[in-house]
Structure formats: structure tokens, C-alpha cells
């Protein structure tokens, strides 16, 4: 790498200033505000603000709704990550065996990524609409009465499918790149060594893909916890009966609809803490098992 030495001490800071300003204004400042807010309580009109210490956090800890939301988020994040990574790996492996039309297939599979999350939510909402949707019609044919408006599990399935679908393109591209960087001769050597296709996949391909898988695991969990807000908002709005009320949606709902800013801020601080902790754990423990 090329190293440049600056004789003037101010120039490097000046050049960094735009990036630092953006980071400060849009990331650090709001995060600090959230932390500050989480220790405060405002009255309904925003006239009086008082410092309440950890009362907001204590209230959350004692709230069954919040604990439910934690649980829903955990289930939701695991399901979205497993489903979208599993499907994209399957698609990527299929593509890796194709010789012709692989680029067309790739192009088509990348499209969902260009769809805005809210639009994706609406799309799946239409497909699974109990009155006008195609899927409930099909499911009725096999004797299943689909209704995500009244059934908690149906609602969760819907938001999981919609969120996972959105992320498949991204995972797929990384898996394809990962697969293509594994030399063909390794799989050939394994074939000669008596490993069948399934065995080769688990003994050779999957371990060599582990850096990609690890990276995607971090990205997907963060995606499921933060970026699925629009999908939830466009489909179930957290219902029915809190069944799809994941943490990030609850932050929005309690803060902007319920106007309970203190509690909302405390929730977002906790959410931030969870994601930081998860990422740290992943880098510390999972990375050790990755075969580079």
C-alpha cells in the first residue's frame, strides 16, 4: 500500500472532515441522544422532563410485552437467517453446477434486492391476503385455512418469508463468489477419494465456504433485527396479539405512536447493546472455527 506523509498537520483532518461530520451527525449524535433519552421521562406535552435513572429499563424488565417481544425477535431472527441463508446456498450451489445461462440466472436472482422493503412487504401481503391472495387459495386446496390476521403463527410465517426473500439475493451473490473461489480440483480430488456429491458438499465445500458463511451470519442477524421494520409495518404491524412485534418495531411503535419517548429510547439502547454483543460474540467465538 502507498503511504502518504503530510507535512501540514491540518490537511489530513480537513480531508477526513466530511466523513467524520457525517458519522458524527448521523450516527454518534443520535446514538448519544438515545442513551440520554433513556434516562429521562417526559410528560404528555413535552413540557416537563425529569431524570429517572434506570426506571425506564426497570419498567421494561417487568413488562411482559417487552419480554414477549424479545422472544419473538429471537425466533424471528433465527428463522429469517436460517431460511434466507439456506435457500441462497441451495441456489448458489445449483448455479455453480450450471455452465450456460448462469449469468441470466444470477441477474434474475438479484432483482429482489432492488425492491424496497416496504414494497416487498406489500407484495407478500397481497400474495398471502386471506381474502384476495393466491397462496391462501392454494393452501385452502390442500385443506389449510390461512389467516395471518387472526393466526399468530401464520403472521410470523408471513413476515419471516417476506424478510428472508428480501435477503436471498444478497446472500446468494456472496455464496456464488465463495463457491467460485474453491478450486474445482479439490472437488475432483474428493470425488476420486470416494466422496459422493453430498459428502463432498459437507466435507469440502461447506468448510471452505465458512468465511463467507460467517460473514453472512453476522450481516443477516443484524438485518433481521434492524432492517425488517418496513416489512413488518407493511404487513402485520406487529400483530396479531404482539405475535410479530419485534424489538425494532416496538421501538418505533412505543416512541412514535405511543409517544413514550423514554421507554422507546431505553429499548433502542438495549437493541443496540444486543447487536453489539452478538457481533462481538460471533467474531470472538465463531471466527475461531472458521477454516481460512
Amino acid at each position: 500500500m502507498k503511504r502518504t506523509l503530510f507535512r501540514n498537520q491540518w490537511l489530513p483532518w480537513l480531508l477526513l472532515a466530511p466523513q467524520l461530520a457525517i458519522t458524527f451527525v448521523f450516527f454518534l449524535w443520535p446514538a448519544a441522544q438515545a442513551v440520554r433519552q433513556s434516562f429521562l421521562r417526559q410528560d404528555a406535552f413535552g413540557i416537563n422532563t425529569s431524570f429517572v435513572g434506570l426506571a425506564n429499563f426497570r419498567a421494561l424488565w417487568n413488562s411482559p410485552e417487552y419480554l414477549n417481544s424479545l422472544q419473538v425477535t429471537a425466533v424471528f431472527a433465527v428463522l429469517v437467517t436460517v431460511l434466507s441463508m439456506g435457500l441462497s446456498l441451495l441456489l448458489a450451489v445449483a448455479l455453480d453446477r450450471m455452465i450456460r445461462s448462469a449469468s441470466l440466472y444470477t441477474t434474475l436472482l438479484v432483482w429482489p434486492y432492488a425492491v424496497a422493503p416496504a414494497v416487498a412487504g406489500i407484495l407478500w401481503w397481497f400474495i398471502f391476503n386471506p381474502t384476495i391472495g393466491i397462496m391462501p387459495y392454494v393452501l385452502e386446496g390442500i385443506g389449510y385455512d390461512w389467516n395471518h390476521i387472526s393466526s399468530k403463527s401464520d403472521a410470523l410465517i408471513l413476515v419471516v418469508i417476506a424478510s428472508a426473500w428480501k435477503q436471498i439475493s444478497y446472500n446468494f451473490l456472496f455464496f456464488v463468489a465463495g463457491l467460485q473461489s474453491i478450486p474445482a480440483s479439490l472437488r475432483e480430488a474428493a470425488a476420486i477419494d470416494g466422496a459422493g456429491p453430498v459428502r463432498r458438499f459437507f466435507d469440502i465445500t461447506l468448510p471452505l465456504l465458512s468465511p463467507t458463511t460467517f460473514f453472512l451470519l453476522v450481516v443477516n442477524i443484524v438485518y433481521a433485527m434492524f432492517d425488517t421494520f418496513a416489512v413488518i409495518d407493511a404487513t402485520t404491524e406487529g400483530g396479531p396479539a404482539q405475535a410479530t412485534n419485534i424489538l425494532v418495531y416496538k421501538v418505533y411503535f412505543d416512541g412514535f405512536v405511543g409517544q413514550n419517548l423514554g421507554s422507546s429510547a431505553a429499548q433502542s439502547v438495549i437493541l443496540m447493546g444486543i447487536v453489539i454483543a452478538l457481533t462481538a460474540i460471533q467474531f470472538r467465538y465463531v471466527e475461531k472455527k472458521v477454516a481460512y
Binding site: 478450486p183 480440483s185 479439490l186 475432483e188 480430488a189 474428493a190 476420486i192 466435507d203 469440502i204 468448510p207 471452505l208 477454516a291
Partner: peptide, 11 residues
């Protein structure tokens, strides 16, 4: 078979 790039399983 012995391959040109050896094809040893790196992991």
C-alpha cells in the same frame, strides 16, 4: 490422481 496444484484439502 496427483493434481498440478496438489488439490490438498486446506482445512
Amino acid at each position: 490422481m496427483v493434481f498440478q496444484n496438489y488439490a490438498l484439502y486446506p482445512h
